[in-house]
Design a protein around this nucleic acid. Structure first.
Lengths: 190, 190
DNA sequence: GCCATTTCTTATCATTTGATAAGTTTTCCC
DNA sequence: GGGAAAACTTATCAAATGATAAGAAATGGC
């Protein structure tokens, strides 16, 4: 997939007037990280939000017992610990890069200050949360309506490159099944 | 449970300065509805958001095939079709009262206009979406980590009155199991 | 209060998914 | 490029959940 530049990423969430966008961009820096880098560690309070320019990451919960990969981030996605971002509390997830990544970084402190002073950025932040909300809610419902096979098929259709870029262990967990079960499904489809 | 007044409901989401709160309250009206009233119908574009003063409601998806109750709203909760509210598109859920209800009602149009003109209300709207987001995300992860038995136990602990107020068919669906399976779990616990 | 209807439970059997383990393929590193 | 490690598949068996149906309990209307 192509690189995503910051203007497109910000605009895709909610178009901002130039002045507000520049306020935001003043606080944003580019960083890179290697594969298998931990961007957020569980039980920490996150101080940064990232936007993914290039690469792929996953968020997983419950690392003591059984790892649950509940989210993949790709080019253009925001990468953050939601719980930590929203409530300023310990996050329940760890976020790890699955490829070498290029990221845009902003301090949550800076972001929150902008929310309080610029109404366009406040509404941008509102839209961001709203869009993420819809995504989780839809996935929550979909998960319950559909069988593992249907969920796998849907992934193939909507996110084919994920299968090329991500280990099947993580795909399986994302689909809510075991790797063995995923293997079974894949062999049935051949 | 006690009645919830509108000031508490609004403040619990995000404390607003009096002036902003009054702007909001000017647009809010009280209504009532009987039991089994449909507040939102699937595939419609919703024009209203409610806050529940008294009563209990449920949201369910997939009404053609198998009903999936994915949310209960109680005193103090906001009642709305998220998809419709966020994207101005057809909602995937139907929302139905399970008791006679007293509600505060606001037009989404009015709300959106306030978002664009009052920064405090914009941030209130942001906080609202953020809090709802965390709730769904936590439930999504919890659903995958825990067995049906654990999920039922957690419901008993965190939401005991739900069992008194709501039919077990809906509880079962909310927990992601069949009513028969829930019965089995309940009898094992005795 | 009584009957009809709805809701809930119990029982039986089928299906799906998980757990474990062994085998195969791929990847990675020297 | 060869060998070790990791990732994936396949096979077998166990456990959890679903489907169906029949019976018990609760609810609601007259």
């Amino acid at each position: 997939m192509e690189h995503m530049n910051i203007d497109n990423i910000l605009n895709n969430i909610y178009p901002l007037p130039d002045q507000s966008k520049n306020l935001l961009k003043e606080k944003i820096y580019e960083i890179t990280c290697p594969k298998a880098h931990i961007l957020f560690k569980v039980n920490r309070i996150a101080s940064k939000v990232y936007f993914l320019k290039k690469g792929i990451v996953r968020a997983y919960a419950n690392p003591e017992e059984e790892e649950i990969t509940f989210w993949f981030g790709k080019e253009g996605d925001a990468v953050l610990s939601m719980k930590s971002y929203v409530e300023n509390q310990k996050g329940y997830e760890t976020i790890e890069s699955l490829e070498p990544c290029e990221l845009y970084e902003i301090q949550t402190e800076d972001l929150k200050q902008l929310y309080n002073t610029d109404i366009h950025i406040a509404n941008w932040g509102r839209k961001f949360a709203e869009q993420e909300l819809i995504k989780v809610e839809e996935r929550f419902i979909f998960r319950q309506c559909k069988t593992a096979l249907e969920r796998y098929k849907e992934l193939i259709n909507n996110d084919p490159d994920l299968l090329q870029r991500v280990q099947l262990v993580h795909i399986a967990s994302y689909l809510g099944i075991t790797p063995v079960s995923l293997s079974r499904i894949r062999s049935e489809l051949k």
